[in-house]
């Protein structure tokens, strides 16, 4: 088996009395495309947010490339209120709670369910700003232009990246003036600009028509090939998911109900009941 990129152990996220993610454990190996699916409100995006540092999980541990990056156990008020499992498992280990930017710096980049591009910036600048993270210059050397070499290198990298994702012809347009499909693609390009090892896509095909979805499917497959990327995605378009995923995790009410290859998932009775359903006219 190949190298383990992301590993979730007993992740539980409890908001007050509501357990949004319940004892979720999953693994993603290098080069895989893994999908996380489930009905609306199942806790997919919450799981995403605990991985990327937006939320601090109530309990559990996230490891990236073999080393723990997020870890917590029920504390304070939550000690009594906690409804999840494995409350003691991580209690003796230090809490790790980095901010999202630190997690991105480790090599994990994400896109958003509702597109979050920088509105007043051009397509080119949107990608260039993502490169800011990789700078070596400080504010003085950047202001007085002692970082020309680095700046030129980053600009060249951005131009090359835009060429690969096919946005070169619109690079001077405002990001928000692009059609929807291209905005999605730009968001992925922006995430790629941080040179991640794991790309996390939160509903990349949301609101897309079938043709755009097909294009996106091909695009994601190409990203994996060209960048040798590991990808975790949340998605509702089953065509896309079944088409490109190597493995699928299904959650319902925060709990993992099935995992495995697309074929296994399609024939799993629990998944069919909870999420996929049966085709009425079949």
């Amino acid at each position: 088996m190949s190298e383990n990129v992301l590993k979730l152990e007993n992740i539980t996220m409890q908001f007050g009395g509501v357990v949004a993610v319940d004892n979720l454990s999953m693994e993603i190996n290098k080069g895989e495309i893994v999908a996380l699916i489930g009905p609306n409100g199942a806790g997919k995006t919450t799981a995403f947010n605990t991985i990327t540092g937006v939320y601090e999980p109530t309990n559990g541990q996230v490891s990236f490339l073999g080393s723990p990056i997020v870890r917590n156990h029920p504390q304070g008020k939550m000690k009594k209120a906690y409804k999840g499992a494995e409350a003691e498992k991580f209690a003796r280990q230090p809490v790790l709670n980095p901010t999202p930017d630190k997690i991105t710096a480790l090599g994990m980049a994400r896109t958003f369910q509702n597109i979050r591009l920088w509105k007043t910036q051009t397509v080119f600048d949107n990608v260039l700003i993502a490169k800011h993270m990789l700078r070596t210059s400080n504010v003085f050397s950047a202001t007085f232009r002692f970082n020309r070499a680095e700046e030129a290198k980053q600009r060249a990298e951005v131009a090359a990246l835009l060429e690969i994702v096919g946005l070169t012809d619109v690079k001077d347009e405002l990001a928000t003036s692009l059609p929807y499909g291209k905005q999605r693609r730009l968001e992925i390009a922006r995430a790629l600009a941080t040179q991640p090892k794991l790309l996390m896509l939160d509903e990349p095909a949301a609101g897309m028509n079938p043709q755009e979805t097909d294009e996106l499917t091909a695009f994601i497959a190409r990203v994996r090939k060209d960048f040798d990327m590991t990808i975790l995605l949340i998605e509702h378009h089953m065509d896309l998911v079944m088409d490109i995923s190597d493995r699928i995790y299904v959650i319902d009410f925060g709990k993992l109900i099935a995992s495995g290859t697309p074929e296994v998932i399609q024939n799993d009775q629990r998944v069919i009941d909870a999420y996929l359903g049966v085709e009425e006219d079949a």
């Binding site: 930017d101 910036q121 700003i129 800011h132 990789l134 210059s137 700046e151 995430a191």
Partner: peptide, 28 residues
Amino acid sequence: LLVNSTYGRAFMAIRDDEVAAEAMGINL
């Protein structure tokens, strides 16, 4: 000069969308 440098662009990213800026590795 500052505004047009990489730091200035990071400032504008924070203005436009703080969540996205943080997710793209900008320490808020």
